[in-house]
């Protein structure tokens, strides 16, 4: 019940800010940007693994939000959920556009290229997770990031990915399992034993 109330309050707050922006209030734009843009960027970066592309996606998504503001329906989804959906779709577009460059990397989870292996050794656990995330299939990657890193509820993820709740549960479970297997396969390279003992 608390989650529902929080969700409703957040939705109403976002709708009120969008209405203020639509009425020409610059301060509302600042608040909306501070609330939403960092989350959009974080998701885009984790899905794409590239800062420049994540910046382009974030800017594009925010422009769409500004354009949508005058027509915003207060009863519709929370603005954050709407924005996540836009970001998710823009990321899919970019991943498909860049597919020839990323296919090899995504198809070789158990035997990463030498460059990736070097990077895993050099970087921290966070980067290892990021690399493993990038090896997941796109839908599983988005679901795992939204559920286990962004902390969204399954019904919100279902709305973002345009899928059913059961499909989301399946995507997150399979994604997390694949992620665990991938990281376990590279434990020695990551030095996890050193961290945990």
């Amino acid at each position: 019940m608390k989650d529902t109330n929080d969700h409703t309050q957040a939705r109403d707050a976002d709708a009120a800010l969008l209405a203020r922006y639509a009425a020409g209030e610059v301060a509302a734009a600042r608040i909306l940007s501070a609330r939403l843009a960092p989350r959009a960027y974080a998701h885009a970066y984790r899905v794409l693994g590239d800062a420049a592309e994540a910046e382009d996606v974030t800017q594009d998504a925010m422009v769409r939000l500004w354009k949508q503001a005058p027509h915003w329906d207060a009863g519709r989804a929370q603005a954050a959920t709407w924005l996540y959906r836009v970001v998710a779709n823009l990321c899919v577009d970019r991943l498909r556009r860049n597919r020839p460059d990323t296919l090899d990397e995504m198809d070789a989870p158990a035997d990463p290229a030498p460059g990736i292996e070097m990077r895993l050794q050099d970087n921290a656990r966070h980067d290892a997770l990021q690399a493993a995330l990038l090896r997941l299939p796109e839908r599983q990657r988005q679901a795992v990031i939204l559920r286990h890193i962004e902390g969204l509820a399954n019904h919100e993820i279902a709305e973002i990915l345009d899928a059913g709740i059961e499909a989301v549960e399946s995507l997150t479970a399979r994604g997390k399992k694949a992620l665990a297997a991938d990281l376990a396969a590279q434990r020695d390279a990551l030095g996890y034993d050193d961290d945990t003992t």
């Binding site: 909306l32 960092p38 800062a51 890193i149």
Partner: peptide, 27 residues
């Protein structure tokens, strides 16, 4: 670790978003 340390967007991106917000501000 990932939850605790989200990737931070650059000041340049924040500025671009602010410029866009002003550009599309309904008159």
């Amino acid at each position: 670790t990932a939850r605790a340390a989200p990737p931070h967007m650059s000041a340049a991106l924040a500025a671009r978003i602010g410029d866009d917000a002003l550009h599309y501000l309904p008159r």
